[in-house]
Design a protein around this nucleic acid. Structure first.
Length: 399
RNA sequence: GGUGGGAUAGUCAAGUGGCCAACGACGGCAGACUGUAAAUCUGCUCCCUAUGGGUUCAGAGGUUCGACUCCUCUUCCCACCA
């Protein structure tokens, strides 16, 4: 039982620091029913969860099965500083209402995965606000600049002449201090958080807490391109609120290689089952596409319903395997004759008439399934199905 | 505070008076091949009913027939010195 729990906890992890501690905590739970605390921090600026975030949430849910009480930390104080990203340093300070709104949408999404009854939502402003200048300086004195510069992105930026604001140094310290205040037993986060996570351990020692949190890091999930991390700004993400059709389609568009990664980090199938699937693909008894379809179905079901997921699968086959028109297409209408390029822009299929012309020249545009090549074409009265590329459709009614 | 260097399209980055809507790379889009996969190959990648026109190279002025390129000021960034 303990071994099984450990194995599941370690699944997909990038790195674990102080696994012995985790083992002890689990043992205490199994033997005496003693619970422990698991901290994870979230930034209230990004209310839209995508599958990259759920990797961590799923891990937290696993811990909850084995006795963890989750400290769902809202970094409302630290959000004002902004975690050093190397990009824009200054961030808007969010209003209380905005933060509340973000948290609300964040947690409703998160509780699709987490067990709400074993989760405490805490705000770090509630203790960091009262830290005061003296407390802050005291905190800052626990670390040297040299140590701070050990952090990978700081050293890179320093070496690369990219500016680093002094306030950015405070972020890891404050995040670490959160662990002191919460007396966390374990903290989980992404590998990019390593420095900050370790800071918690360090500060718990400095502040004489008699214990140091174990740290468990999950890898950063790659986005649809399979290379860069999944993120909204790179537009390579699958949002948990994506519509079933989109979600299904996006998952099916990932590469075979990435599919295994998604299986490991997102599927609830056991590692043995996944191994069996892999073996099946290798020996040819399973088609990689059907394995991918199963994954798409599983994940779509999780965030929607089995019925919707199934419908998404059927729709996908209809549109792509049989190249038919999707069931639901956005409809537009216009009065009087319209130039094709203009029509494509009006239907949001193209960003400019220049772009539309180029695509028509390249044979990317179809009207009622027929490829067109005339960039001067005028659409007269009637109904048209406009298509650009393989996936952009619109219905246009010309009156 | 002083001195020097820099800011070019989504990103990186060439261009140092006309040949510049601006080399190249990446990204993105599209086509071929497929399993809407990957890999590969090809084309496109500021806007505009367009063999032409318009607006761009941090911002504002100026010199010039002509400026991304030269001058002045402003803003921001970097390095070195203090």
């Amino acid at each position: 039982m303990l071994q099984e729990a450990l194995r599941e906890i370690q699944r997909g992890c990038a790195e674990i620091i102080d696994i012995e501690r985790i083992e002890k905590l689990l043992k205490a739970y199994f033997d005496e029913g003693k619970t422990f605390t698991l901290k994870a921090g979230f930034d209230p600026t990004a209310p839209d969860l995508h599958l990259g975030h759920t990797v961590l949430l799923q891990k937290m849910a696993t811990f909850q099965k084995y006795g963890a009480r989750v400290q769902f930390l809202i970094g409302d104080f630290t959000a004002a500083i902004g975690d050093p990203s190397g990009k824009s340093v200054t961030r808007k300070i969010l209003s209380k209402e905005d933060i509340e709104k973000n948290i609300k949408s964040y947690t409703t999404q998160a509780f699709k995965i987490l067990d709400e009854s074993k989760t405490d939502i805490v705000y770090n402003s509630s203790w960091l606000n009262s830290l005061g200048t003296v407390g802050m300086i005291e905190l800052a004195s626990t670390l040297t600049v040299a140590r701070m510069l050990e952090r990978d992105d700081f050293s890179k930026r320093y070496a690369g002449n990219t500016p680093i604001a002094v306030s950015e140094f405070l972020y890891p310290l404050l995040q670490g201090y959160d662990s002191v205040h919460l007396k966390s037993d374990i903290e989980v986060g992404g590998t990019d958080q390593k420095f900050n996570l370790l800071m918690g351990r360090q500060l718990q020692k400095v502040y004489d807490l008699k214990k140091q949190q174990a740290v468990l890091m999950m890898p950063i999930l790659e986005g649809l391109d399979g290379v860069q991390k999944m993120s909204k700004s790179l537009n390579n993400y699958i949002g948990v609120t994506d519509e079933a059709n989109d979600m299904y389609g996006k998952i099916l568009s990932i590469s075979d290689e990435l599919m295994w990664r998604f299986y490991e980090l997102l599927s609830t199938r056991t590692l043995d089952e996944i191994e069996a699937l892999k073996a099946g693909v290798v020996d040819g008894s399973l088609h990689p596409k059907s394995v991918k379809e199963d994954l798409a179905l599983e994940i779509t079901t999780r965030y929607h319903t089995p019925e919707l997921a199934k419908a998404a699968k059927e729709e996908f086959q209809k549109v792509h395997a049989q190249s038919q028109i999707p069931t639901e297409i956005e409809e537009f209408s216009t009065d009087g004759e319209i130039w094709i390029a203009k029509a494509l822009v009006d239907c949001n299929l193209e960003s400019s008439t220049s772009q539309a012309r180029r695509d028509i020249k390249q044979g990317a545009v179809k009207i009622n399934q027929e490829k067109i090549s005339d960039i001067e074409l005028q659409l007269i009265k009637g109904e048209y199905i406009l298509q650009v590329g393989k996936r952009k459709f619109a219905k246009l009614k010309v009156n």
